[in-house]
């Protein structure tokens, strides 16, 4: 396949950026999107140009580091995959591919396609944990019966990898899907009850401090989320918040 890439280039957080066009050839359908980016970068390095900086780590869809807004969609046109799992066979020979960083004022661009998503870490630190005693007298896991349905829903919520595609996709740059997944994974389990009220209040408060927008229930996040996190989690978080407030 021969493709035309239009990529956002930005020297550093302070400089203005712009879209730059790069032709690329001999791309195979079985390659991942990031392998294609590696090939481009090899070519750029050989030509003595600055390679395109982008985030990645595990390259198997579990770490949440890879990002990129590809042809107008977070993690590209495929469903329930991260950019590292996106195959080039999703594109046609001769196609132009637009590649931009995840955009939200709460996710400032550091360089090219790399964005600072530490706002998510601060939300997580504000309440996304439970206090357990791990000093050798840990309770037997089976001593607390948990309904299968609840365990499954908690597990579904816990599959959120914190990639930020929901924020990047949302027209309001809302972080509700992420925060609701992190609230839900504990709200559904008995271990999460002790700190339930403080958790939702503190995490939502931190979310607001970070400057994410307001959810208007467009549902775009749920469609683009690589882990299929459901909007039901947002409804649950809203219930948790009401419970904590009254």
């Amino acid at each position: 396949m021969n493709l035309t890439l239009k990529i956002w280039r930005q020297k550093d957080a302070k400089s203005p950026g712009k879209m730059v066009t790069y032709p690329i050839s001999n791309i195979e359908g079985h390659m991942s999107f990031l392998e294609m980016m590696d090939i481009l970068n090899d070519e750029l390095i050989e030509k003595g140009e600055e390679p395109v900086a982008f985030d990645h780590d595990c390259r198997e869809g579990i770490c949440g580091m890879c990002s990129m807004y590809i042809n107008g969609e977070a993690h590209g046109p495929d469903r329930k995959v991260t950019t590292c799992q996106l195959h080039m066979r999703m594109f046609k020979d001769g196609e132009t591919i637009h590649i931009e960083p995840f955009r939200a004022n709460s996710f400032p661009v550091l360089k090219d396609l790399m964005v600072d998503r530490s706002a998510f870490d601060r939300i997580q630190q504000a309440g996304g944990y439970i206090s357990v005693n791990t000093s050798g007298n840990t309770q037997d896991a089976n001593s607390l019966p948990i309904p299968k349905a609840d365990a499954d829903l908690a597990m579904d919520a816990a599959t959120c990898i914190g990639c930020g595609a929901c924020v990047a996709t949302c027209k309001n740059s809302s972080a509700m899907l992420f925060v609701s997944a992190k609230v839900s994974q504990y709200a559904l389990l008995p271990q999460g009850q002790v700190e339930a009220n403080d958790r939702v209040l503190n995490m939502v408060n931190q979310m607001d401090i970070e400057g994410f927008g307001n959810c208007t229930n467009t549902g775009a996040c749920e469609v683009e989320c690589p882990k299929g996190i459901s909007l039901d989690n947002i409804a649950r978080m809203n219930r948790e918040l009401m419970k904590a407030k009254v």
Binding site: G72, H98, E100, A104, E224
Partner: peptide, 14 residues
Amino acid sequence: ARTVKYAYNKPSAN
């Protein structure tokens, strides 16, 4: 919450 817009966006996809 997003002052720099996407150069290319496809909201109808989602």
